[in-house]
Design a protein around this nucleic acid. Structure first.
Lengths: 412, 412
DNA sequence: GCATATAGTTCAGATTGAAAACTAATTCAT
DNA sequence: ATGAATTAGTTTTCAATCTGAACTATATGC
């Protein structure tokens, strides 16, 4: 569900199943059934609906819903009037006075947002600041300030914060809250003080990889509604990625899967910052595209602006630079699709802004190197903006609440 | 555990957890605890051991073990004498009078073997026959003959057959028992009549991909004891593969993951039979290696023999052909390791016979294209012989028994 | 107003594992 | 030998939980 490792392995864990575990499982099921309908705002399910959705009896559902309501996760939303005969049911929805905080640290900005359990973004704050080379302590202090603003907004709106998720552009160890390596921030093996961000949230704050968060945001709020399995490729300073398999993130055994930026696409290609050669990033990273397109040095956003302008004007150097990047993206996607049995590709990050020029090149690359595997209609461009990673981090936190409702105190 | 898809996706399964499901889960746990020690033949665990292994109470374990014994899956193996004080416990082991049948269809032979639940191969029959282009019906008839021989051996030894697994060299749909595409057999979209093979086995026969089976055999009987996560690359006529993540096979959303033979390792490489270009198979497939080494046409096994001879004699064309294949294997492994966060590679199939010459080249390729990701000690050569796929298919069937013990009738 | 239909609650019954008391079988010290 | 100590396994009681059936509550429609 969230960004946890999904490769468990161990057969006989030392924890046996007890009778109480049945209830835990059913609390999750009931919550999932109520959450499922949260996109359809008017028709909240009744207890009877939940019973037929889950296969539980009405009696059990009543008892389970009562417990979820006690812990503040679920609330009634007034009687449903359906014009049918019989006693009308009472609609159930995820509580709008509980929420989670999504956070993002990126090279040029930090941001924090408040998502209520219903999935509505209730607050959203961004602070532009150059973080490259800035000390982790200093960045975390700025972020803590932003978060406390969000927290007071939440308090003012009567929303209790249950947990949070932080996305950073680099390899992370989710379990220990450590950034192993974030080249663009120049951070290496940094243990972030996550405990300080949301001291009162019962579930604390989890650390995630930015590209993985963006891939999940795409799953929950973007093309994931169409695709269950896809490679998400995020163009940032480098090229990040996320693998979604069966509507779940594939994080790999150490949570560091999806590094499509370092798939080798040409064994005689240029040296890469990772120490290898011919990685996708050396062809489709920002620097490579700008250089190939002849865009002079400057800030990333200015250069991107300029590229977009030239693309629009039909400048040959620009279009062929982007087409070349797209072709190599197609090659990397072809290898990935073969390896992992994937059938769709979603382009995000700065690739979104090159969408009309880069997507056709990706389709051509795929057709040349893995014909028949990914149909043209299954190469999509993300429509989520800069907030994708934030949404993904918040969504992950939200889902970890929904996956473990029993860990919350009954009084809330 | 077995070859099922491990990407499940749906959070709320339609079947609710009932109190009885707790017992099902604990039956599996107890069985796993008993199975865990099956490699250590003398020291079978007692009920008390199982209790401490699983965290269940002795009372519960007694009851669960009684049920497993009733259904014939577990048997007592006499009192353990440990020289310690106190009442000696009674050793428990998986029943040796229940078993599963592993089967393999390959280009040059078919085979069938009987594995008892303890993991011992009790019978093993192979029939050399050229299957390329032979009709599926005809091959299945031959296989059925072989299986019935194995079945009568089993009956003679008092072994009841619970289920079976069949490995074929091609893409399969496990759920429907269909071979989507097996180029080397020239089979396409063939529904094999699996039901006829073991008509009396309660769990029937499942269909698996050969390279995946070999990867699992490696997991259970080979280097899997050292590595929890690895890419298995199987050299056959083509180049097949299997991905093991967290000691489980990663089969992908449609059960067709692991096709490392068609990872693009050189975008300007030769055309591939898959319709793409520069696939690993065009550099490391049998034909490519033989051609590069200057081995004249002939049967696959004769040419392989010849290659091995020349390698041993230090023939330059042969060693450099194999080194080239190894280098490209290293490139494909580098991309795979980055994408899926893997840290080991196991070479199998005919690569085993080139082991001393090809493994160092793979290590060099990895060091060049993904430095630091896979240490040299984690590039291994399989030591399982031709029976790897058979063992994997049987092991998968065995594990599907152990994963669903409650589906067997109590009387056995 | 009353039959009908649907929502939700209450209560007895069954399944299951935990905990504790109990029986069984063995070693060790005297 | 004999009894204390120790460990294995069983029996009994109890609490948690779901199911199913009976019941209450609230609506529609004739």
């Amino acid at each position: 569900m969230s960004l946890e490792k999904n490769a468990d392995g161990g057969a006989a864990r030392p924890v046996p199943a007890r009778v109480e575990d049945v209830r835990r499982g059913n609390l999750v099921r009931v919550l999932a059934a109520i959450a499922q309908a949260r996109t359809d705002p008017q028709r909240h399910p009744t207890r009877a609906d939940v019973a037929s959705l889950t296969g539980l009896t009405k009696a059990s559902v009543s008892s389970l819903v009562a417990e979820l309501a006690d812990s503040g996760l679920v609330m009634e939303s007034g009687a449903t009037r359906d014009g049918e005969r019989g006693r009308p049911g009472v609609g159930l929805k995820l509580s709008t006075n509980r929420g989670v905080v999504g956070m993002e640290i990126n090279v040029d900005y930090i941001s924090a947002g408040l998502l209520d359990l219903g999935g509505t973004l209730r607050a959203d704050k961004t602070l532009e600041c150059g973080n490259r080379g800035r000390s982790p302590e200093s960045v975390m202090a700025l972020l803590a300030g932003l978060v406390s603003e969000v927290a007071s907004d939440a308090a003012a709106a009567g929303i209790e914060i249950l947990g949070g998720g932080l996305a950073v552009p680099g390899l992370v160890e989710t379990a220990s809250g450590t950034v192993s390596s974030a080249p663009n921030l120049q951070w290496h093996n940094v243990a972030l003080g996550l405990g300080g961000l949301l001291p009162d949230a019962p579930l604390g704050t989890a650390l995630y990889n930015e590209a993985n968060c963006a891939a999940l945001a795409e799953l929950w709020y973007g093309h994931g509604l169409d695709f269950r399995d896809y490679l998400f490729v995020s163009g940032e300073v480098g090229v990040g990625g996320g693998l979604v398999i069966g509507s779940r993130l594939f994080a790999g055994p150490h949570g560091q899967a999806g590094e499509v930026g370092h798939v080798v696409v040409d064994p005689s290609g240029p040296d890469c910052s990772c120490g290898g050669r011919g990685c996708l990033e050396t062809f489709a990273g920002q620097e490579a595209i700008f250089a190939e397109a002849g865009i002079p040095a400057g800030t990333a956003s200015a250069r991107l602006e300029q590229l977009e302008e030239r693309l629009g004007a039909g400048n040959t150097a620009a279009t062929s630079a982007v087409a070349r990047a797209g072709r190599y993206l197609g090659i990397a996607a072809a290898s990935t699709a073969r390896l992992m049995d994937l059938s769709a590709v979603v382009l995000g990050g700065h690739f979104t802004r090159m969408g009309p020029w880069i997507a056709p090149a990706v389709v051509r690359g795929l057709a040349e190197y893995a014909p028949g595997l990914v149909s043209p209609g299954r190469v999509a461009v993300s429509e989520l903006g800069q907030s994708a990673a934030l949404l993904g981090a918040a969504g992950s936190a939200l889902r970890s609440v929904l996956a473990a409702p029993y860990s919350l105190a009954p009084a809330g």
